[in-house]
Structures are given as C-alpha cells and as structure tokens.
Amino acid sequence: MQLVKQSPWQRFRPWVITAVVVLIFAWAFSGIPLASVKPQALIITKAIFHGLFHPDWSYVYTGDGEDLVTALVETLAIAFLGTFISAILSVPFAFLAARTKKGFFTPRSTLGKVILTIVRVFPEIVLAIMFIKAVGPGAYAGVLAVSIHSIGMLGKLFSEAVENIDRGPNEAIVAAGGSALDGLTLATLPAVMPEFMNYTLYRFEIAVRSAAILGMVGAGGIGAPLIFALQTRQWPKVGIILLGIIIMVTVIDFLSGQLRKKLV
C-alpha cells in the first residue's frame, strides 16, 4: 500500500497559519496599553452597578417633557420615522444595485453596489453632525441621519431580495403584452414585498439602538440625558436611563420578532 505523500506546504500549513494568527494578535496587543486604566475604575464600576440597582425613579416621569419616558418616546419616533423614510428611499437603490443580468460586466449593478457600500460605511455620527449644521440640534437631525444611513443596509438587503425572486411571472406578463411597469407592479413587487417588510422591521430594531446613541452628539433622543448624567456623575440617573434603554430595546426586539415571524 502506498501512502499519499503530503507536500511540504500541506504538512506545514497548520503551523504557518498558527504563527500568522499569533503574530497578528501579538501586534494587536502591543498597541493597546493594557495597564492604562484609571485607578478609580473599580469604584466607578461599583457606583454604576449601585446606580443600576438603586435607580432614580423620580426621573421616570416628571411631566415637564424632560423625563425618561419623553426621551424614550422621542428615540422611538426618530427610529420609526427614519426607518420609514429610508425604506421608501431604498427601493430605487435596490433595483439599481440588483444584479439581474448574468455576465461579468454589469455597470448598473456595480454602480449601485458601490453607492450603497459608501453610504453604509459613512459613519452615522458624522451624518448626524452634518444634519445638525443644516437643521440645528434636535430630533429632526437624528431622523435625517437614520433615514440616510439606513439606505446603505436596507438597499443591500432589498437588492438581494430582488436578485433572489423567481423571474418567471415577470416574463409571463411581458410575454402576454404587459409593459415593464406592469411586470414590476404585478409580479416583482408582490413577490419581494414580504421580504422588504421583514428587512424593514429588522432595520427598525437596529435604528432604535442607533437613535439611542445619536443624542450623544445632540441629535435628539435618550443619548443626550445619558451623556450629561455620565459627565456629571449622577449614577442613579445613569442607572435609570440604562434600564430604560434595555427595556425599550428588549420590548421592540420582541414585538418586531413576533411580527416578522407572522410575515415569513
């Protein structure tokens, strides 16, 4: 019996990979000053946890519009409006980026994909600051930032949905004498609608999280009171805001998950 001889590369491959991985992580750890932690870190951690377990309940609702409930509702409003606008804006981008023709040279779809990648990588915080310059600080800037930034991800997911549908019905309508618009409204859109709704709800879950953050740069929502409370070291207030965010995100995730289960 003759054993298959391993080439040197096959024999050393695991070792080479291990060495490369170890080198990469050695380099990564070398750049992080692991010891540079504030000496009072433990005390502050304790204070935050103390705040989490003894939250400032009086902040939940005061009635003057500067309380937790108002800020959370504003956060949800930013996320809802932003996602709604971006879901509509994403549809043309999705059809632009969808690769419906086979072949190597697809300038239209490549252009769409490049645009969507740039939008996706453009940091949401920078967008928020640009919009704050245009409309002033507040929730409106947050809505605009969410609605533009979400196009990047929604457009990509939508275009994949368009790529994956069965194109038979569309061809049948065109063959029977329907216009391209008939094909779009009667065959393509009904087929992709459930997936579009599903992705929109999924993106809404993400938008709630980012709307909770955008306030840190002044774009409305719960972020602003949180960063103030952190800077002024009001730990009980930090605690109640964190609890509020956790509850809001969990409830929205649950509701949206239930709706999405029904859709699919």
């Binding site: 504030k38 935050i48 953050i213 840190m216 952190l230 965010i245």
Partner: peptide, 28 residues
C-alpha cells in the same frame, strides 16, 4: 445575555470612558 445584547456599542463606549478613562482601553 439578552440584557448585554440590548446595549449599543457607542453606549458601551461612553460607559467605559467613564469607567477606565479616555484611551484605547475604553474601546477594548
């Protein structure tokens, strides 16, 4: 685990900056 996942990344960053101070350790 669900509670941990509910916290967005930048919010965690703000918390860690308050805890360990400004610098890459907060990001880590």
């Amino acid at each position: 685990l669900n509670l941990v996942r509910a916290l967005p990344d930048l919010l965690l960053a703000a918390l860690f900056v308050a805890i360990v101070g400004i610098g890459p350790m907060a990001g880590v």
